[in-house]
């Protein structure tokens, strides 16, 4: 049985990572260490978020092309088209706050 894509919770660290990915140039994608440096989050927080976002299809991870000299290959991350759309929708619904939940309950009661 394949597991369904995880639901992305819009926590502050998740938003920080997504904002960074949204702001970066596609020709210069960030990798794990750079994300920890630029967001100020620890690796213990960043890697699980990256994994969840990748499983949900919001971001794509790709290994660096070729074999760089003097260091191991990095894994670059970039926001996917789905990720852009979903993140924009999540931000829009976040602005509304609890209203959708209450609306959902009252709609179901009728």
């Amino acid at each position: 049985m394949t597991s369904p894509p995880p639901k992305i919770r819009m926590t502050t660290p998740t938003r920080l990572v997504l904002d960074l990915l949204l702001a970066t140039d596609p020709d210069d994608p960030p990798w794990g260490y750079r994300i920890t440096e630029e967001t100020g989050l620890g690796p213990g927080t960043v890697y699980p978020i990256l994994e969840r976002l990748e499983q949900a299809g919001w971001i794509t991870g790709a290994w660096e092309d070729g074999i760089p000299e003097g260091r191991p290959r990095r894994r670059f991350y970039s926001l996917s088209g789905t990720g852009r759309v979903e993140y924009a929708a999540a931000r829009a619904s976040r602005r509304k706050g609890w209203v959708p939940t209450l609306g959902h309950i009252t709609r179901r009661s009728n």
Binding site: P72, R73, R74, R75
Partner: peptide
């Protein structure tokens, strides 16, 4: 496979 990614990132830290 994550071990390779972490080793690459650790190199920089």
């Amino acid at each position: 496979w994550r071990a390779d990614e972490w080793m690459a990132d650790l190199e920089q830290s």
